[in-house]
């Protein structure tokens, strides 16, 4: 890997190190229900970052103490595959940074998931980072949204998330790992329909004059992401609905044929 000090964030042509323009998102792919026994699951790939999320529940809380009588509690666990390529050191399950990512995801979804519909239960969200190349938290949030949709859990809206960096005065969207190391990063998660923000997280300092511009840009990018997710979800839902009704008709015909043939 190139030493970070030598990395050229924007070249003379105005392109980033992976030949993207400043506002260009990485290529995305979604996959719903890869996990057959979870209530809902999704895998999202953004560039070279792949995150797989499984949702279990609403189910009986594993620890009685953590339950609430009027709403569901959300528990998030984050794991990183050893081969994910986050860096040299291996992360244990109890790692502080991972716990923080988990807490961010929980805080992002708590106000949006309609937990009051599922009293005395628990929503368990398992996040597995399969490969990491920057933007783990936004990709995990996007995957969690799709997994919750797959599980049929009521939410106010989709949540989409994106990272925004700042190079001199130029905001950059959807950072990759080398960029993330060199630039101040803002992670935004928002409800695209209303433009409300459920998460804005920053670990480095930034000039306050640039912040608003980045935030507005982030919300705009979230809308684009949501359009992609929605299109995928609808197309898939349509196909499955069709499949289920087709199969019923098929089975009816079959049943008739079976009885005629068998008796």
């Amino acid at each position: 890997m190139a030493s970070s000090s030598r990395l050229e964030i924007l070249n003379d042509g105005g392109l980033r190190h992976d030949a993207r323009r400043p506002y260009e998102l990485r290529s995305m792919s979604f996959h719903l229900s890869p996990h057959p026994t979870a209530d809902g699951s999704a895998t999202v790939t953004q560039g070279l970052t792949t995150v797989s999320v499984s949702v279990f529940g609403p189910r009986e809380p594993r620890q009685r103490s953590s339950s609430s009588h009027d709403r569901a509690v959300i528990a998030v666990e984050v794991g990183v595959a050893p081969w994910a390529g986050t860096g040299a050191q291996r992360r244990a399950r109890g790692d502080k940074r991972l716990a923080e990512v988990g807490a961010s995801i929980r805080q992002t979804f708590e106000p949006v998931v309609m937990t009051h519909l599922y009293p005395r239960s628990e929503l368990f969200i398992n996040v597995q980072v399969v490969s990491a190349d920057g933007g783990i938290l936004p990709t995990a949030i996007n995957a969690t949204t799709l997994a919750l949709v797959d599980a049929g859990i009521a939410m106010l809206d989709y949540i989409s998330s994106v990272s925004i960096g700042l190079h001199l005065t130029q905001p950059l969207l959807d950072l990759s790992a080398p960029e993330e190391m060199d630039l101040p990063v803002l992670v935004v998660a928002s409800l695209p329909n209303s433009g409300k923000i459920t998460l804005a997280q920053m670990e480095t300092r930034l000039h306050v004059d640039r912040f608003e511009e980045m935030l507005v840009l982030g919300v705009e990018a979230c809308k684009v992401l949501k359009t992609e997710m929605e299109e995928y979800v609808k197309e898939r839902t349509g196909k499955v609905v069709q499949r289920m009704s087709l199969a019923v008709e098929g089975a009816k015909g079959l049943q008739a044929g079976f009885i005629d043939g068998g008796r």
């Binding site: 797959d150 599980a151 049929g152 859990i153 106010l156 979800v233 839902t237």
Partner: peptide
């Protein structure tokens, strides 16, 4: 009336509900 899940709209007279594709 806003949907909160992904699924098919079901209408009984004036009652609108959305049935999710899969749920618990």
């Amino acid at each position: 009336v806003v949907s909160s899940v992904a699924g098919t709209i079901e209408r009984v007279n004036k009652l609108i509900s959305v049935k999710p594709l899969k749920s618990r």
